[in-house]
């Protein structure tokens, strides 16, 4: 599978990375080189092999339904949440106006 300029531009748009035409053009051979190389995985016979789900045998732990049990994962920390915001007003984050 090799990518062309249009595909690279589409991927850049999906990834929300603005790219100039020249940048797109430059990335085409780079991606093709890498994709061409990873495609050797197609050689591997994986019949009957399930994709790996857990690196180390372990089961998903569940949390108790308790509010703010740990301050590091609880709410009520608006100042901390907004502390690094590029735009914060009246307790909200601000973003350029969105039309739905």
């Amino acid at each position: 599978m090799s990518v062309d300029k249009a595909t690279v531009a589409k991927i850049a748009s999906l990834a929300r990375i603005r790219m100039t035409d020249a940048e797109v053009e430059a990335m085409v051979p780079e991606l093709n080189q890498i994709l061409g190389w990873v495609e050797q995985l197609g050689e591997v016979d994986c019949a009957g092999i399930e994709p790996m789900t857990a690196v180390i045998p372990n089961t998903l732990r569940l949390r108790d339904d308790v509010v703010d049990a740990d301050p590091l994962t609880g709410g009520g920390v608006r100042e901390k949440v907004l502390a690094n915001a590029p735009a914060a007003e009246h307790g909200f984050f601000g973003v350029p106006k969105v039309i739905e």
Binding site: A87, E89, H90, F92, F93, G94, V95, P96, K97, V98, I99, E100
Partner: peptide
């Protein structure tokens, strides 16, 4: 998202 609180911004 709140759209009607600011002329040029939406609030989150």
């Amino acid at each position: 998202l709140m759209h009607d609180q600011h002329p040029t911004m939406s609030y989150v």
